[in-house]
């Protein structure tokens, strides 16, 4: 399904991805956790070439390419295998909620307007926003925008959905509604790769947790293995830090 070998990426002197190997099976939900700057988001963005990796091999669905030499056509094919949900939603600002979903169907899948609208409305229904079909993004709350963005990602029927910190930009009271939607699509066995800081959520929805630090995969396993019996010191330290109660110095 997703098969990544020895993926490398460097920004000037900084090595962001230092030989990443990942295998994700059809229907698997994988959560990637780790400290900021560990390369989690870059990894996700390399999978659809929003960042261009320096070396390595990426296979997703029907597409495969070598990061060192690929054509524009190969890149386009690889991108069509996945869809992405961004931290700050990135809904098309000049399109209504419904049009945000139907845009790719009409433009890339050459679907008829009426057919696309039907799919779009069904997806809006699924994320609980059918009544907002004709609203523009600016009139929606962050949580609503992110739910539309998830519907937009589902519309293209991707082999996998890449979610890049989907709740990090949200006000705390809006996080739950978005997590609920992600959970509901996880239950439908949609292949997902989620970069997240929501540890409890990751434990709940993910089949597997990957812990990354300094551009490497330090440890991976089932949520129980990673959260309850972490083997690596760095994983232990990271989990301690984020679960420790916040103390203020007065």
């Amino acid at each position: 399904m997703i098969h990544v070998t020895n993926l490398r990426k460097q920004f000037k002197d900084l090595v962001v991805l230092d030989g990443i190997d990942i295998e994700v099976k059809q229907g698997e939900v994988v959560a990637i956790i780790g400290p900021s700057g560990s390369g989690k988001s870059t990894l996700l963005r390399c999978l659809n070439l929003l960042e261009s990796p320096d070396a390595g091999r990426i296979e997703i669905g029907q597409a495969a390419l070598d990061a060192q030499k690929y054509s524009r056509k190969e890149a386009h094919q690889l991108r069509q295998q996945t869809a992405m949900v961004f931290q700050n939603y990135n809904l098309f600002k000049n399109r209504t909620a419904l049009q945000n979903i139907t845009e790719s169907l009409i433009i890339t899948k050459k679907m008829k307007q009426s057919e696309a609208d039907k799919i779009g409305l069904a997806l809006l229904e699924q994320v609980g926003l059918a009544h907002k079909a004709d609203s523009y993004p600016i009139t929606l709350s962050g949580g609503q925008q992110q739910r539309v963005a998830i519907a937009r990602a589902l519309a293209v029927e991707p082999h996998a959905i890449l979610l890049d910190e989907p709740t990090s930009a949200l006000d705390p009271e809006l996080v739950a509604e978005v997590l609920q939607v992600i959970k509901s699509i996880a239950e439908k066995r949609t292949t997902m790769l989620i970069v997240t800081h929501e540890m409890a959520f990751a434990r709940q929805v993910a089949d597997r947790i990957i812990f990354m630090a300094d551009g490497k995969i330090v440890e991976q396993g089932t949520p129980e293995e990673i959260y309850d019996r972490p083997q690596n010191q760095r994983t232990q330290r990271f989990l301690q830090q984020i679960t420790a109660p916040v103390t203020f110095i007065s």
Partner: peptide, 20 residues
């Protein structure tokens, strides 16, 4: 982010410019 969103749903750069 608008261009990235277009590319991420499988549009080409030309389609992204024209439509969004």
């Amino acid at each position: 982010g608008q261009l990235e969103a277009c590319l991420a749903v499988g549009m080409t750069k030309t389609q992204a410019y024209r439509r969004i």
